[in-house]
Design a binder for these strands. Structure first.
Length: 674
DNA sequence: GGTAACTGGGTTTTT
DNA sequence: CCCAGTTACC
C-alpha cells in the first residue's frame, strides 16, 4: 500500500510506537488534541501492512461521525467492499450481526429497533398495571422516561435495581418493587412483539460471543479490534471487548479517563482503568503532545483536568503562545447574549468565518436567549445536540406510519398512528388494535372489522389513511413506499398542526433520505441508531457552502475543535449542573465535562458568567449571592484567565440640566407663580 | 365511558 | 415544550 510511509511519517515518536506496537494488548492514553484519530488510523494501516485482511479488522466507536471519519481516512476511497475495514458504532455493528443471524437469536427477520423514546412509550402503556401512574400516597410516580432510564442503567451497568434507584434516583425508592414488576413486563413485551432496544443490541451480541457454539464463530471474524473512546464503554461493551479478544493480542484501546462524560448512560471509566488487571501484559502508551490548543488555553485545561492515580497525564502545547482565556463577567443573561454576539461579530470582521467559532453549552436551553439575539443580528447558526429532529411530533408520526407498513405487527406504531386522528384517544386506539389482532401476519386484512369500532365522525378519515398505507405496503421500491406513506399522512397532519406546511416539508426531506435505503426497514433502523441532528442535516450538501456558527452541547462537541470557543453560563447550577450534584460522582463528571469543553478551543477561549439569572428573583441588591461563578474556575484556574466585565448598554441622553429646568417650569405653571 | 381543551408545574447530557 | 390532572362536552 502506497500511503503507509506517509501515514507513519507525520506521526511523532509516541504516536508511531503506538501505531506499530505488536505482541500484546495496547492501551493508548491519549489526551485531548494529541492526534488520537491519526494514530488509530495509522495503526489500522500498519495492521493491513502486516498482512491482516482489512475485513478482519474491527473498528468500534461511539458515534457514527467518528466511525465514518476514521474509516474514510483508514482506507483508499476507491477500495472495493471486500477490501474494507469493518467498522461502526457498537450498536450498529451489533445490529449488523444480529440482523444477519436473526433466526439464531429467535427474532423475526423484520424485528424493529426501538429508540429510547419508544421504550418510554412501552413503559407508559405498561405502567398503570403496576401502580406507577399518577400520585399515590402523596408521592409522584416516576415518569415513563425515568422508568426507561432506570431500566437501561440497570442493564448497561449490570447493577441491581435497588442499588441503581438508591444511588441515582433516591426519590423513586418507594417504587422499587413496582419498577421490578414493570421491567419484567417490559422485557416480555419486547420479546412478544419482536422489538429490540439499544441495550438489547449489545446484550444479544454479548450473549452470542459468550455462547459455546456461536462465540468462537463470531470471535473468529476479526483478528484485530480497535476501540475508540474506551473510557465511555459500559459494562456490556467492556464484556464484548473482552469476549472478542480473550487474550488481548489483537486489542487496541484508545481513551482518556479525564474525558469520561457518559456515566448517565452507564459508561464508567473504571473499565479503562481495569484493562491493566484484565490483561497482565497490557502495554500503555501515553500521548501528551497537544497539537490543538495554544499554550494559555492548555494551561487552563491542565489545571482543570482531574488526575487519576496511575493514569496521570499532563499535556504540552505544541502550537506555541497565544491569547489567554478571557473571563467576561456579565451583568445578566441578556448582557451575556449581547456580549457573545459582539465578540463573534468582531472576530468575523477580523476575517474569521462563523464556522470557525462555536458556542458550547451544558444544556440545550442555555442558548435560548442567545439564539434570539443571533437571529436579531442576522448571524446564521446550526444547533447540535439538545432536541433531536426525530423527537419532533410530526417526525414521530411519520416513523410510526412507516413502521406500520414495514412491520404491521408493531402495535406501538399503530397506537401512535391511530391517535394522530381527531376523536381517537388511548381507549379507542387500543380497541381498534385488539380488533386488528396484531399478532396475525396480515393485520391490514382485518381492517374492516376494526373500522366498524370507530365512531361515525372519524371513521372516514382514519379509513382513508389506512387504505393509503395498505397501498404503500404494496409498493416494491422504497422511494414509492415512502412517498405513499407521506401521502397518507397529508390529511391528518394538516388537520392536527397549524404549521402543517413546514412539517410536511420536513417529512418530504425525510422521505427523500429514506428513499436511498435498500428497504424501509433499513431506513428505520438507520434513523433510530443515527438520528439526524437537525432538519437541515437531512438536506445534506447545499449547507456546506453556507457559513454558520455552531451551537452545541458540550457532550456533542466531544472530539471536535474550533479556533474560537465561547462557553456561556459558567454559573454553579448550570456548570456544574445542579441535576448532577445528587451524587459525589456527579460533580467529578461535571468537571470532566468542563475539561472537554475547554479543550475544544484552538486559539481563543471566551468564558462568560452572568451575575444574575433572570429567573431567580432577588430580594435585594445582593446580586453576588446568585449566579455564582462556577466552582471550576477558582484559585489556580482563575489565575490562568484574563478578566473583564460587561454591563448593559445605557441609552445616550443629552445633558440633564435643560430637562430639569423644563420640569421646574412645568411645576411653576401649576400654581401660576411669577 | 371517552375525548378535547385547558391549566399548572417541571425541564441535563445521548448511542 | 411535555406531562398530569381537571373539567366540560359527546
Amino acid at each position: 500500500m502506497t500511503g503507509l510511509p506517509g501515514v507513519l511519517d507525520v506521526l511523532n515518536e509516541d504516536q508511531r510506537r503506538a501505531a506499530t506496537h505488536q505482541g500484546s494488548p495496547l492501551l493508548i492514553l491519549a489526551g485531548a488534541g494529541t492526534g488520537k484519530t491519526g494514530t488509530l488510523v495509522a495503526r489500522a494501516a500498519w495492521l493491513r501492512e502486516q498482512g491482516i485482511q482489512p475485513s478482519r479488522i474491527l473498528l468500534l466507536t461511539f458515534t457514527r461521525r467518528a466511525a465514518d471519519d476514521m474509516l474514510a481516512r483508514a482506507q483508499p476511497p476507491d477500495g472495493n467492499a471486500a477490501d474494507r475495514i469493518c467498522g461502526g458504532t457498537f450498536h450498529a455493528v451489533a445490529h449488523r450481526i444480529i440482523r444477519a443471524h436473526a433466526e439464531a437469536f429467535a427474532l423475526p427477520p423484520e424485528f424493529s429497533v426501538i429508540d429510547p423514546a419508544d421504550s418510554s412509550d412501552v413503559m407508559d402503556t405498561l405502567r398503570d398495571a403496576h401502580g406507577l401512574v399518577g400520585t399515590s400516597s402523596g408521592r409522584r410516580s416516576p415518569r415513563a422516561a425515568t422508568c426507561a432510564e432506570i431500566y437501561s442503567r440497570c442493564v448497561s451497568t449490570g447493577t441491581q435495581l435497588a442499588d441503581v434507584v438508591a444511588e441515582g434516583y433516591p426519590w423513586c425508592v418507594p417504587f422499587t418493587d413496582q419498577l421490578a414488576g414493570l421491567f419484567t413486563d417490559f422485557v416480555a413485551y419486547k420479546r412478544r412483539h419482536g422489538l429490540v432496544d439499544f441495550d438489547d443490541l449489545l446484550l444479544l451480541w454479548r450473549a452470542a460471543l459468550a455462547d459455546a457454539a456461536a462465540g468462537p464463530v463470531l470471535r473468529g471474524l476479526f483478528d484485530a479490534v480497535l476501540i475508540d473512546e474506551y473510557q465511555d464503554v459500559n459494562a456490556v461493551q467492556a464484556d464484548i471487548a473482552r469476549l472478542l479478544q480473550p487474550d488481548g493480542s489483537g486489542l487496541t484501546c484508545v481513551g482518556d479517563d479525564a474525558q469520561a462524560i457518559y456515566a448517565f448512560r452507564g459508561a464508567d471509566p473504571a473499565h479503562l482503568r481495569a484493562l491493566a488487571s484484565t490483561y497482565a501484559d497490557l502495554a500503555i502508551i501515553r500521548l501528551t503532545r497537544n497539537y490543538r490548543s495554544r499554550h494559555p488555553v492548555l494551561s487552563l485545561a491542565n489545571v482543570i483536568r482531574p488526575q487519576y492515580q496511575g493514569l496521570e497525564l499532563a499535556l504540552t502545547a505544541e502550537r506555541g503562545q497565544g491569547h489567554r482565556p478571557v473571563l467576561i463577567r456579565c451583568h445578566d443573561e441578556a448582557t451575556q447574549a449581547r456580549e457573545i454576539c459582539a465578540r463573534i461579530l468582531a472576530d468575523y470582521e477580523a476575517g474569521l468565518r462563523f464556522q470557525e467559532q462555536a458556542v458550547l453549552v451544558r444544556s440545550g436551553h442555555h442558548s435560548d436567549l442567545l439564539e434570539i439575539e443571533l437571529a436579531a443580528r442576522g448571524i446564521p447558526y446550526v444547533k447540535y445536540g439538545g432536541l433531536r429532529f426525530t423527537e419532533a411530533a410530526h417526525v414521530k408520526d411519520f416513523i410510526a406510519a412507516a413502521r406500520v407498513v414495514a412491520n404491521p405487527a408493531d402495535d406501538l406504531a399503530w397506537f401512535r398512528l391511530l391517535r394522530l386522528h381527531e376523536g381517537i384517544g388511548p381507549v379507542l386506539a387500543r380497541r381498534v388494535i385488539e380488533a386488528l389482532v396484531i399478532a396475525e401476519p396480515k393485520p391490514f386484512g382485518r381492517w374492516p372489522e376494526a373500522e366498524a369500532i370507530l365512531p361515525q365522525r372519524c371513521s372516514a378519515a382514519v379509513g382513508a389513511t389506512v387504505r393509503q398505507l395498505t397501498q404503500a405496503a404494496g409498493h416494491e421500491r422504497t422511494a414509492d413506499r415512502a412517498a405513499s406513506i407521506l401521502a397518507a399522512l397529508h390529511e391528518p397532519l394538516a388537520a392536527r398542526y397549524a404549521d402543517a406546511a413546514v412539517r410536511l416539508a420536513d417529512l418530504q426531506r425525510l422521505a427523500d433520505a429514506a428513499a436511498d435505503s435498500p428497504s424501509l426497514h433499513d431506513a428505520l433502523v438507520q434513523l433510530a441508531l443515527d438520528p439526524p441532528v437537525s432538519a437541515s442535516d437531512l438536506a445534506g450538501k447545499p449547507r456546506l457552502d453556507d457559513d454558520y456558527l455552531v451551537i452545541s452541547t458540550m457532550h456533542s462537541a466531544k472530539g471536535l475543535e474550533w479556533p474560537v470557543v465561547h462557553l456561556p453560563q459558567l454559573v454553579d447550577g448550570a456548570v456544574p449542573s445542579d441535576m448532577a450534584l445528587t451524587a459525589p460522582a456527579g460533580l467529578e463528571e461535571e468537571q470532566r465535562l468542563f475539561y472537554v469543553a475547554v479543550t475544544r478551543a484552538r486559539d481563543r477561549l471566551y468564558l462568560y458568567t452572568p451575575l444574575r439569572m433572570h429567573h431567580h428573583r432577588m430580594a435585594r441588591d445582593d446580586r453576588h449571592s446568585y449566579g455564582q461563578l462556577t466552582r471550576f474556575l477558582t484559585g489556580a484556574a482563575l489565575a490562568q484567565c484574563e478578566q473583564t466585565q460587561a454591563v448593559p448598554p445605557r441609552p445616550a441622553l443629552a445633558p440633564i440640566a435643560p430637562l430639569a429646568a423644563s420640569v421646574d417650569r412645568e411645576l411653576q405653571s401649576l400654581w401660576g407663580a411669577g
